[in-house]
């Protein structure tokens, strides 16, 4: 064996081993537990059952899923609306400013997102920075109620996940062939036409990638809605946590995790299929 291939085996093998031991094996245990029976005397009882999957599709769980989906979809749509113009402008400005802006976007990652969520509380609370400022300028006479509302939840989620939308969009917009837009203009297309018929289809892979990177975490996140929204509703994350920590129903919690994972896998498959379609559309556009 040559040194090069030994290195290659090591470089590929060690992360694979890491993932196998700390991701695949624990996940297989989750899948196994989801087919076992709750036992208040022990962690689980080793009796095979499908009951957990039957129980999980209760009206309450469907409502919990709906809450999570609405929140995740809303966050994705908002981040897309904010990120697209930003990423577009980013590709058109001076390289030095661009680099500076990209660094600014990465800086928040140096702090834990939990800490940053607490910082948002300080900003939004009734006697917080924003209200104190607005009251002192006389723009409002009563403190605005922002904290513990849906608005606060969306602000928190969008703020935390925005970079995950901007970066793929930026990469995708950077690759955009300017000549195609110039050609369209020469042929008399309006700006709207250029955008909807050239730019948007060509950056579709970026949009899909960004949306996936925002949607999937938004589906599982529950500490941001809890902290900023006041925990008045229940999300999939809360539901799973309660099965493990309140009712000691590890099998039901495992089944809920499996359902959540399947939901995400389905979305990923859809993502791959639509990216491939977008890519072939790409080729047609060039032809």
């Amino acid at each position: 064996m040559t040194r090069g291939s030994r290195f290659r085996n090591f470089a590929v093998g060690s992360p694979m081993l890491w993932i196998a031991v700390f991701v695949v094996v624990p996940y297989l245990i989750v899948v196994l537990f989801s087919f076992l029976t709750r036992d208040p005397e022990d962690i689980v009882s080793w009796t095979f059952t499908l009951e957990n999957y039957r129980d999980i599709f209760s009206p309450v769980f469907l409502k919990v899923c709906r809450n999570s989906l609405v929140l995740a979809l809303g966050t994705t749509a908002l981040t897309l609306l904010l990120a697209y113009p930003f990423a577009y402008i980013l590709t058109r400005i001076d390289e030095n400013i661009r680099r500076f802006l990209l660094v600014l976007m990465i800086i928040p990652f140096w702090t834990s997102s939990l800490i940053r969520t607490y910082a948002l509380i300080i900003l939004f609370k009734a006697n917080g920075l924003l209200n104190t400022f607005l009251l002192s300028t006389g723009l409002i006479s009563e403190p605005l109620s922002i904290l513990y509302t849906e608005t606060a939840v969306f602000i928190g989620l969008v703020y935390t996940l925005l970079p995950f939308m901007i970066l793929p969009l930026y990469a995708s917009l950077l690759k955009l062939d300017r000549r195609l837009m110039e050609a369209a203009r020469d042929l008399g297309a309006t700006s709207r036409h250029v955008f909807f018929h050239i730019v948007l289809p060509l950056t579709l892979p970026g949009i899909i990638a960004g949306s996936t990177m925002v949607f999937l975490p938004a589906l599982g996140l529950f500490y941001i809605p809890d902290l900023l929204g006041g925990a008045r509703s229940m999300l999939i994350g809360n539901f799973i946590k309660n099965q493990f920590l309140t009712t000691s129903h590890w099998p039901l919690g495992s089944a809920a995790s499996v359902v959540l994972t399947l939901l995400m896998v389905m979305l990923l498959v859809w993502f791959f299929i639509s990216t491939r379609r977008a890519h072939s559309g790409d080729m047609e556009a060039v032809r």
């Binding site: 309450v60 919990v64 925990a231 229940m234 309140t246």
Partner: peptide, 11 residues
């Protein structure tokens, strides 16, 4: 039973 009603209350 508690958890069932808790979920109903929260949803």
């Amino acid at each position: 039973t508690y958890e069932k009603y808790w979920e109903l209350l929260k949803t």
